[in-house]
Simulated scan of single mutants.
Amino acid sequence: MTAFNATLKDENATVALGQQFAQAIKPPLVVYLNGDLGAGKTTLSRGIIQHLGHIGAVKSPTYALVEPYEINNVDIFHFDLYRVADPEELEYMGIRDYFTDNSICLVEWPENGNGLIPAADVQINIRYQDEQRQITIEAHSDIGQTLVNKLK
């Protein structure tokens, strides 16, 4: 499987890449977002969600764990599992029910849901590089490979 790499100079570039990514996606899709606090995971998610048609703010679901959006009959779920201490907490919220054939799931801190969330189609890694961000988008399924190919 291949990967797409880019350097993002600022927040606007991160949102723009999210918009580009959104042009190529359709359900079902599971996206893992990895990176340190403040790396730009929610900013990228905002670009994706707004480009898909959401009007208004896209906030980090840190305390709610999930922010749902229904756009054009597609369910989009933005998860932030940072505060999950035990994956069993996710079982109580019925996390498996979110991952359907009609959903796009963006999952920040996926390692905290280990064993309870499906494998990623695409894994996005964002890391600091001075004042910029380095992003790598890796395919982990045939769906993900098609998506990465569209980004290249």
Rank of each mutant, 00 (worst) to 15 (best):
17 L>Q: 05
149 N>C: 02
54 H>V: 13
107 V>F: 01
59 K>Q: 07
51 H>M: 11
33 L>D: 10
13 A>K: 10
18 G>Y: 09
100 T>Y: 10
89 E>H: 04
64 A>T: 15
42 T>M: 03
97 D>G: 15
1 M>S: 12
78 H>V: 12
125 N>I: 10
113 G>K: 03
63 Y>G: 10
115 G>T: 01
60 S>G: 04
133 R>N: 06
54 H>W: 14
150 K>L: 05
95 I>N: 01
37 L>M: 10
46 R>F: 04
150 K>Q: 07
146 T>K: 11
67 E>H: 15
123 Q>H: 03
83 R>D: 01
39 A>Y: 03
130 D>S: 14
123 Q>L: 05
150 K>A: 09
2 T>L: 00
91 E>Y: 02
99 F>S: 09
90 L>R: 05
116 L>S: 00
3 A>R: 06
92 Y>S: 01
114 N>V: 07
107 V>G: 02
142 D>S: 14
131 E>Y: 08
140 H>K: 13
59 K>G: 07
42 T>K: 09
38 G>R: 03
118 P>Y: 07
52 L>Y: 13
1 M>E: 01
13 A>V: 03
106 L>C: 13
82 Y>C: 09
109 W>V: 06
147 L>W: 00
53 G>I: 14
95 I>A: 01
114 N>I: 05
19 Q>I: 06
124 I>T: 12
129 Q>H: 07
21 F>L: 15
51 H>A: 13
78 H>M: 12
22 A>T: 11
7 T>G: 00
93 M>N: 04
136 T>Q: 13
38 G>L: 02
131 E>M: 09
22 A>C: 11
36 D>Y: 04
126 I>C: 10
103 S>C: 11
4 F>W: 07
67 E>M: 06
119 A>D: 15
52 L>W: 12
15 V>W: 00
64 A>H: 11
9 K>D: 12
6 A>C: 02
127 R>G: 05
63 Y>K: 07
9 K>R: 08
77 F>Q: 13
96 R>S: 14
53 G>Y: 11
81 L>I: 02
77 F>M: 12
70 E>V: 15
143 I>W: 00
45 S>E: 07
67 E>D: 12
97 D>F: 11
68 P>G: 14
20 Q>A: 14
142 D>G: 08
73 N>S: 14
2 T>N: 12
119 A>G: 12
65 L>P: 01
40 G>P: 07
80 D>M: 10
85 A>P: 02
127 R>L: 09
